[in-house]
Design a binder for these strands. Structure first.
Lengths: 214, 214, 214, 214
DNA sequence: GATGAATGAGTCTTCATTCAT
DNA sequence: GATGAATGAAGACTCATTCAT
């Protein structure tokens, strides 16, 4: 009862994917050599091509896997819904940060993916765009219910608020990522709590402004 | 004090830099071929290597030039100071946008530089980081005087406000850049005014929050 | 007398040979991949190497088999002898054509074999040459008795006549083969009869010349 | 006054073409390695690609050059026209033979070209077909005027006669080529005269038949 | 014995860099 | 000094052949 048209060795495939992830994430598409991936995966060059077709498809597969892995986890609604917008977004961000600590390579890969794809056929652009959209959707799904209970200043729409919220949280995450790069010793979310306090203040600013009412 | 004989032809050197800027900015480091730069600059390939040593140095030189050019212009305090924070930041952003329209290649190069530098020796990373810091400084120099006249909510510092302000304006500028990429027909700041209205609302949110006072 | 243990499965071996024949004949030596042969034969790649040693040996074996098969059939003296040279040679050719229709792959293989063998060790050249000679012999065996009853023009030997006869029939067969390639719908000798009429005229020219006696 | 978009070194280019001709002719397309051509031409691999683009185009260029070279020479009407068909065709063949002795590689290449092209994109098939047609045309142009003065046997057309003539001369040339391969010491046409006497007899057979009039 | 996953030498091709002119 | 022809190291990819299971 042979069905296998893909009799791939899952162990080796995993090693290849892991090696590809690590190298693509840290060096980008062009600078990563298939030879290097094969060496890191302790696998022959030929096998990589047998499993993935060519370098580009390997990149795309790596991208997709990183995306899928992150999405799978994010989708588990660990996010406690709440009426407190600041607390909720802070929590969500804390969660994202923990993911970033757990899967730094996947994050790095997807972050750069958007840039590197310019140098690739459009075939893979969708993954990254999907990821962007999914991320946006997630925030929206989370935040909109809370917005529904709030009253906006005249002239300000929910979309405006959401946009600003997004700018702030992504800006924050970006700076956070840089912080991690220069502090590789940090590996737990607990160590990051002081920085998360910053975010809380930032979000409160978005909600109520920084200007003291006179 | 040997001046390492270099009676370089400034006209040709400028052509090389311009060609390098255009190509590196639009295609990135790896995808840009030295041949193409030489052709675009109407200069022999050999001369490029004589003037810049190698491709990487040329990239770094191009990066530095783009940075210097932008900084030189930004430093002219065209920025009208004002007491209205929103108006002022909007103005500053409008100014940045006009720069972006005037020097799209320099902007593009520095934007990607951050990513591509990972694939290069750290020797060049400083340019991009300097640029980031300088940018921050500029905003700070501009905004802090206004902050001085404002009263902050308890628990919120000027740094907090500045940070959020930065997040929002850079997030906005990023989206703006993407808009420009997909609308190459847009070439004047005037055409962008509608979009700038968005920013004004965003900034007002930062200042006063989006939540209506009850 | 060690029979080098080879309890080969004749069914599988036949399938391999058939697959090799089909692929080598249509695509040539280099363009035919061992993988493809194994797949077409529904046999593992390893088995091919166990049975035939390497790709080259497989090619040679295929060549030999094609040769043997054709020779075995040609030897059955289906050829009706006759006193009419033209009728006889036309018949023989008709017979060759029917063989060609029955065994197109074997013909194709041997046809190309002559070319491709240059790229292989001389070890296999003999098959093709043998085939050429055998073919010649066959014609000779058939034609010579008829020649014996004929009177040749002064200065013309039986060998001359035989040679010219051979040139004409092989030239004709070659053109015929090309015709078949571009008309794959033709599968019976009956459909070829019109073309065979050409051959009859050609042979009559060889026998009596094309110049009208004055 | 630079115009050169093809500043190719004619000496090196000639060496490359010569090397390519020799190797392609003797080993065929696939079995000939670009490395080998570069080595034989005493030129770097890169230069071959700069001059010819890729291996296939090099093959095509070689094919075309062989074709052009032969055609250029054949077109010089060295062929003395004559009313004696046999003498004329023999002369023409003698001429072809001298060409074959002078340009054995070109002949070999074009001979195999037809076979090897199957494994190449159709882009080059035209050269070989052109060559075939041109060759046919040449014979026709030469022979038809003579035919015009002749009367054909009833039922035999000029086309028939031409076809048989072609079969015989090409069959002869083919055998001749094989003879040359196994007698590399033969280098002048003079040495071939005995064999040419054969052809004369063959052609006379075509003209008047081999059967003695009773 | 049979399998087909795995290997890696070998191939084409690119392009930064050199150097004779 | 300037040129651009020439180089060859390096990279993606193929496929005959091997060998552990």
């Amino acid at each position: 009862m042979k069905r296998t048209r893909l009799p791939e060795d899952p162990v080796k495939k995993a090693r290849m994917q892991a090696a590809a992830l690590a190298l693509f994430a840290s060096a980008g598409y062009q600078a990563t050599k298939v030879d290097a991936i094969a060496a890191k995966a302790q696998v022959s060059k030929g096998l990589i091509f047998k499993y993935f077709g060519n370098k580009e498809q390997l990149y795309l597969a790596t991208l997709r896997q990183a995306y899928d892995r992150l999405m799978a986890i994010m989708d588990e609604t660990v996010w406690q819904e709440s009426d407190d917008l600041v607390a909720m977004v802070t929590n969500a961000t804390r969660y994202k940060i923990s993911l970033q600590l757990q899967y730094p390579q996947e994050f790095q890969l997807l972050l750069n993916g958007f840039i590197h794809l310019k140098q690739l056929p459009a075939s893979g652009r969708q993954y990254v765009e999907q990821m962007m959209v999914a991320n946006q959707d997630l925030t929206q799904r989370l935040v909109l219910p809370v917005f529904a209970k709030m009253t906006f200043k005249p002239g300000i729409t929910a979309t405006d608020a959401l946009t600003v919220l997004n700018y702030v949280t992504s800006g924050y995450l970006e700076k956070f990522q840089q912080y991690l790069l220069s502090h590789p010793e940090v590996t737990t979310v607990a160590e990051m709590e002081p920085l998360l306090a910053d975010l809380t203040r930032y979000l409160r600013i978005v909600e109520y402004g920084f200007v003291a009412p006179d």
